[in-house]
Every structure is written in structure tokens, then in C-alpha cells.
Design a protein around this nucleic acid. Structure first.
Lengths: 211, 211
DNA sequence: ATTCTATTGTTTATTTATTAACAGGTAAAC
DNA sequence: GTTTACCTGTTAATAAATAAACAATAGAAT
């Protein structure tokens, strides 16, 4: 069995997607699912599904029925959420993501605990478990709530300086949604560039239509 | 020179990122930029930068100064925006993206023309060039405004049915921000899964910290 | 004018990821 | 009990992406 830390980014992405799907279908589908169905539902190939599950040591396969759904979820959990809980904050509000993270995301080991934005006035307006702070309280809020992952969603002009504050407060993981690439030594940064995605979509859409 | 339609997704992504950077730095930096600087600023390797520019036939290189910035932008424009304008809509609001697309995005060939969400009451409340409609008007609005690209940003439970309406209205390109994978024949779909990005970030962040 | 440095264009090698292929074996059907 | 069909695990082949390396040369320095 490979060392888990050696898993590539692609494998981790697929594992995350398998799990999202399995969690959604857990109660409506049967107790088993085969690599062919999982392939169709996630977009990965059958071979990738089987290889990924082998890699993480998912043992419950039944050569005729496929894999046991709950065991597969447990196996992925063991890889993706191996240590303590992850406490997450949104910096720069984004209603759509907030809804997703609060109401659709079933992973209890990764929890949204704070939102920092321009509009919040006080020092921590609560809504359930979720604290809402003004931008000025980022440092304080991150430290007090022990935030270790941030989803950064501010205008490009503020990206770098905001990221610096966040990192100074102790965060070591950032999902950067703004179209300014971040690269900070010692911090894992996942850059999501919406502009790139738009331009990619227009490019390939056009080639499909015209060629 | 290769056929432009053969460019891989990765190359297109990098071209988009080079251009974003060049547009930002156009006025503050000098008239030339070399592959080393562009590499550092975008995260691609020097070799990738040079190979990509060769691929698209960027001719203005100067063996001592680097590439001419404006010529590089023109070359990328010719590849990424080869045909008519692209008219874009947001389905499901997302303030952060709206701001980015309206005020930070310099590409005049891709224009945000409509927002569809739950809160809009009328049949097209304008804000500058931008029309805002209620969800119920998706079909009508897309057709009237000749929208051909949509950024889809609705709760997972509505993703598929909303996408179907959008496609029925004639759209052939979707940037899907919801965590439910879309796959519609004849439609180019760029799936951006925020949950996957979060889980990937937590995974690699943890491995950096603990191993 | 000459030397030297920096940068490109291109080749080659390496790594990574995807795709194909198939032997083996288990559960189901009869 | 025997046969059959199907699904996994694994290996091999292909393709794609990344990284390394370097000759050629334009322009700067002197």
C-alpha cells in the first residue's frame, strides 16, 4: 500500500468526488456500487475508480456486486480526514458558497466557523454556530476561533494583502477564489480562477460550434 | 504551427493566465517581459511559457529583452477570442463574482449581460448594461439577450433542472460552480467544485504540517 | 570592434496520467 | 452441481505534461 501522503492531487480530487457522490446517494441507492456506475456518475474512468480504491486499500469489493458503499466512504474518510477537525472561514462573503457549505456539505470534520466581510458591523454576530466579523477583525477572529483553512473571496486588488494577514494569523491552507494567483511559502494554496474557467469554456465552446 | 483547436485545456488555461497578468501589468511594467518573469508571476515554468508562445505563433520575441507585451496580448487574443463576442449570464447570484466580472475583467469580447436570481422581482431590472431577472425568466431572458455562456451558481438540488432550462434556451457553454457534476452532450461544461478544492486543500495542508 | 551575458527556440528525458486489455474468480441462474 | 456472466485487480501500452538541458545569437558593456 502506498504512503498516503504520496497520493497525487488528481487522486485526491477524485476521492473527494467519489465521496460527495456516495454521501448523496447513500440512502437512495443499494448497499453496493460498482466501478462502472461510479465512473459514469463522477466522470472518472472505471480503471481510475478501481485503481484509486486499490490505492487507499478499500477492501470490501465483491467481485459480482461491486464495492460496499459505506466501506468505501469509510476508506475515503480515513485518507482525506485523517487528523483533527478542520475549522474553516470565508473571507469575503459569497452567499452561494455559504449556503453550500452550511446546508449541503455533509463532512463534519470540516466546519465553517466564521465569515469575515465588509458589511458585518460588530465583533462577531452569530448565526447558529457561525460567527460573522468585520474585515478588521480577521487576525483576532482567526486566532480565537482556531481557524486553519480560509476561502478567500476578495477583489483582486486586496488579495495579496488579505492573504498576508490571514497567514500571519496562523492559517496554512487557502482556497483562493480571486483572479490573482497566490504563492506563499509554507502555505498550501488552491487557486480557483473564475476568469480562466470562463475563457476556457468560451474557447472550447466556440471550437465545438464552429469546427 | 498547430491547429488552434488542438490546443489542450492546460495550454488554454495558461494562455488565459498569461493574458490576465499582462493586462494588469501592461501600464506599470516595461514594453517587454521575459519567460522567466512570466513564469514567476503565473506559476507556469519558463519552458511552458516559451513553448506555449511558440505554439500560438507569438513572433515578437527579442533574444535579449524577452517578448513584447502588447504583441503577446494580441497573439493570445487571436487564439482565445477568435470569433464573435460572448454574452455571459450569472444564474444564481454571487456578489463576489459579479464585482469581478463587472469591474476587474478587462476582456471586452466576453461581457456579463444578465443576472438571474431568486430576489429580482421584475422582468429585467437594469444596472448599467446589466439586466437582472427573476429565475422564472431564464428562458426568455437568455433568448432575448442572446446569452451563450452561463455561470451556474445554484444549490446542488437545482443544478440539473436549471442546467436543462439553460440548455433548452440555447446556451452551449456552462461554468458550473455547484457541487453536482454536469455532463450534457453537445454542451461544453467547466465544472468547478468548491468542496473538492476545500478537501484537497485540507489534505495537502495536513500532510505538509504533519509529515 | 570584441567580449560577454542573458534569453530564446528546440530537443531530449522524465514523470505522470490515461487508456486498453485480460486473467481470475465469485455469485447468480438454472 | 454446472455453467455463465460480470466485475475486480493488475499489468501493459499509450499519451500527455513537465522538467532538464543546451546550442545559437541579439544586444549590452567596454
Amino acid at each position: 500500500m502506498p504512503i498516503i501522503g504520496d497520493l497525487s492531487g488528481k487522486v485526491v480530487e477524485r476521492l473527494s468526488q467519489y465521496r460527495q457522490l456516495l454521501l448523496k446517494y447513500r440512502y437512495t441507492s443499494g448497499p453496493h456500487i460498482n466501478s462502472s456506475d461510479l465512473s459514469r456518475l463522477t466522470g472518472a474512468t472505471q480503471e481510475s475508480v478501481r485503481r484509486d480504491l486499490m490505492l487507499i486499500g478499500c477492501q470490501s469489493s465483491n467481485i459480482r456486486k461491486g464495492y460496499q458503499v459505506q466501506d468505501m466512504i469509510d476508506s475515503i474518510n480515513a485518507v482525506l480526514d485523517p487528523y483533527d477537525k478542520c475549522r474553516m472561514a470565508l473571507v469575503g462573503d459569497n452567499d452561494a458558497f455559504t449556503e453550500t457549505l452550511l446546508y449541503e456539505y455533509e463532512n463534519e470534520l470540516i466546519r465553517l466557523v466564521a465569515i469575515f466581510d465588509f458589511e458585518a458591523l460588530g465583533n462577531g454576530i452569530k448565526r447558529g454556530d457561525l460567527n460573522r466579523f468585520h474585515f478588521g477583525k480577521i487576525n483576532e477572529g482567526i486566532k480565537n476561533l482556531k481557524v486553519n483553512l480560509v476561502i478567500l473571496n476578495v477583489p483582486g486588488a486586496f488579495t495579496r494583502q488579505t492573504a498576508d494577514i490571514i497567514v500571519q494569523s496562523g492559517v496554512r491552507g487557502i482556497v483562493n477564489m480571486s483572479p490573482v494567483k497566490l504563492d506563499i511559502p509554507g502555505v498550501y494554496i488552491e487557486n480557483i480562477n473564475i476568469i480562466t474557467s470562463i475563457e476556457k469554456a468560451t474557447f472550447f465552446m466556440k471550437w465545438r460550434q464552429y469546427v
